[in-house]
Design a protein around this nucleic acid. Structure first.
Length: 298
DNA sequence: TTAAATGTTTAAAT
DNA sequence: CATTTAAACATTTA
């Protein structure tokens, strides 16, 4: 489910509770969504949690075996979710409730494991991390940290959105005739931008998502980079987008609130927030819902 | 019943 | 060969 801001939010939350935990056992419920030997992780301690594009990386090490290092690389795709269940009173993370992120479903608050649970990581202190995914598109890979750059998917990722020089940005925008929205979402060019933030960034930059990327003027490209960074930072500020209706958000303070600040995404038929008389239109681009205001986005 | 859902990969068509 | 597009993956919800 998540795009960069959602994964970043999840990373920040997990980084507060996972470091120091020692893996007791990893249980694979769905072979399709797992890669690696789960037994190899036993006794490894979590060092830290990081993010690359839309993927989450949990770093592990084990002093007993010459300080060897492993990493869990996780991609939630459309409907993945990670839920951390503290084991109770004595948990050093001092969490009262579970911590949940990713695609919002009833599993956030229901009994776990559920029928959507694909991987379960048990820690020695009794706490548990669940990887759920109803559509089974997501995956978890356990690999030696030294080989992390060779992981298929990670090896082809473009730079993070804020790591571009103006020159490089202009180059990737102008070197394709694909609709600009699809260019923004191309992970091999820029990592982390998905459908929500691509729609909203184009609205902020006042650019029609259907235009060929190569047709943007240098000034429009420049504005677009600003817009992308703006909406991503806004997404991170609000803790990502988690639900349209707040159904699972408010119960225990789980989830983010960016969904309350959508600018164009999912606003079909509603008046443009610029109050310019335009109504948000919708078409399908690359099979994904594309939303824009025909009045201000040229 | 049909369409769509916050993503990536692979096959097919240009 | 490079670029684009469509289909596939599997499931739920509107």
């Amino acid at each position: 489910m998540p795009e960069l801001p959602e994964v970043e939010t999840l990373k920040a939350q997990l980084a507060q509770v996972l470091p120091g935990k020692i893996i007791k056992e990893i249980q694979i419920c769905s072979q399709k969504n797992w890669q690696g030997d789960p037994q190899a992780a036993s006794g490894f301690q979590i060092v830290d949690v990081s993010r690359r594009g839309k993927s989450l990386i949990i770093h592990l090490s084990k002093l007993e075996t010459r300080n060897s290092k492993l990493s869990l690389v996780i991609h939630l795709k459309m409907t993945g979710q990670l839920i951390f269940e503290p084991h109770g009173e004595g948990d050093p993370s001092h969490l009262k409730h579970r911590l949940a992120g990713g695609h919002p479903t009833a599993d956030f608050i229901n009994q776990l494991p559920s029928k959507h649970t694909r991987v379960i990581i048990y820690f020695t202190d009794g706490s548990v991390l669940y990887f759920n995914d109803q559509r089974k598109f997501g995956w978890v890979k356990l690999i030696p940290t030294g080989q992390i750059d060779q992981v298929k998917f990670l090896d082809r990722l473009g730079p993070e959105p804020w790591d571009f020089t103006e020159t490089k940005w202009q180059q990737i925008i102008h070197s394709s005739k694909k609709p600009i929205k699809l260019r923004l979402m191309d992970q091999e060019q820029i990592s982390g931008i998905g459908n929500i933030y691509a729609n909203d960034a184009l609205w902020v930059a006042k650019i029609d998502p259907r235009r060929p990327a190569s047709s943007l003027t240098p000034q429009e490209s420049k504005n677009l980079r600003q817009a992308v960074i703006q909406v991503l930072e806004e997404g991170i500020k609000f803790g990502g987008a988690t639900a349209q209706d707040g159904k699972y958000v408010d119960l225990k303070g789980l989830g983010g609130h960016y969904q309350e600040h959508f600018k164009a995404y999912q606003r079909e038929g509603q008046p443009c927030l610029r109050h310019d008389g335009g109504t948000i239109n919708r078409v399908s681009l690359g099979g994904r819902g594309t939303f824009w205001c025909p009045v201000c986005q040229k």
